[in-house]
């Protein structure tokens, strides 16, 4: 299997605070990886480094054959390959659901009229929101907004998708619909890296779980690892999560 994302000894500081202290891991095509850990463990930062929302101080990150830390990186090409969904959805409030979805395909890939419309329809079908195509974000529930955000990202046909705590801002009864969409994507073969607090979901949907602690990859394994943690830190973390 080909490697899509590869981090090697990545270091990252905000001012004097070192957030990532030598992080390394690989993600292969079609793999679903969940990153778990306490807030402050560096898991979101690691994710944001992958599409260079944050710049790293040392180490290397390779995404789809591109060196992310290279000064001559084609940032826009990188971001066409990497989709990201945020905790706070970040839909564009002045655009309808369809406009939100087709904005980037139109501007970046020059997709025209009917073709763009079809693209929006397909993406919305995938997240089960075909009937909301003309709605504005504020008319939707949080869970629906987050599904539109996933559709918006999907419409760019990324090679890998990043999910940054996408259910953390949602009421418990709305997280289910978003997680179901993500599970469907995972089954469909999408390469996914997700930072999450949903332990049950990580165990069920992820091929591999990475536990991060104090800016390092502390423990890694299949979903079953959550049933038999090796380090006291993970044991402790899991005990507090439940």
């Amino acid at each position: 299997m080909s490697v899509v994302v590869k981090l090697e000894d990545v270091h990252k500081s905000f001012g004097l605070v070192e957030v990532l202290r030598g992080v390394s891991f690989e993600v292969s095509a079609g793999e679903v990886v969940a990153i778990i850990g306490r807030s402050g463990s560096g898991k979101s930062t690691a994710l944001r480094c992958i599409n260079r929302l944050e710049k790293i101080q040392s180490g290397s990150i390779e995404v789809c054959g591109r060196r992310v830390e290279a000064p001559d990186l084609d940032l826009r090409a990188l971001r066409q390959d990497v989709g990201i969904v945020f905790q706070s959805y970040n839909l564009f409030p002045h655009l309808t659901v369809e406009e939100n979805i087709v904005l980037a395909p139109r501007r970046v890939k020059n997709v025209k009229g009917a073709e763009a419309h079809a693209l929006a329809r397909t993406a919305l079908e995938q997240v089960g929101l075909s009937d909301k195509i003309d709605a504005y974000p504020e008319q939707l529930s949080g869970g629906q907004q987050q599904r539109v955000a996933i559709a918006r990202s999907l419409a760019m046909s990324p090679k890998v998708m990043l999910f940054d705590e996408v259910t953390s801002a949602l009421d418990p009864e709305l997280t289910g619909e978003v997680l179901r969409v993500m599970e469907k994507l995972a089954k469909g073969g999408m390469t996914m890296i997700m930072v999450t607090h949903e332990m049950g979901f990580a165990r069920r949907a992820a091929d591999r779980v990475i536990y991060m602690h104090t800016g390092k990859v502390w423990e890694t394994g299949t979903g079953a690892m959550l049933g038999s943690p090796q380090t006291p830190e993970l044991k402790n973390f899991l005990a507090n999560e439940l």
């Binding site: 090409a77 990201i84 564009f92 002045h94 904005l103 980037a104 501007r107 970046v108 760019m156």
Partner: peptide
């Protein structure tokens, strides 16, 4: 800022981000 961030993560250029995402909201 998250709006700009989201637009740039969709591979929009700086100018497209300004025109399609930031300015319409700023105008209001």
């Amino acid at each position: 800022r998250t709006q700009t961030e989201a637009a740039e993560c969709l591979a929009l250029t700086r100018w497209q981000t300004l025109r399609d995402v930031v300015l319409p909201q700023a105008a209001r």
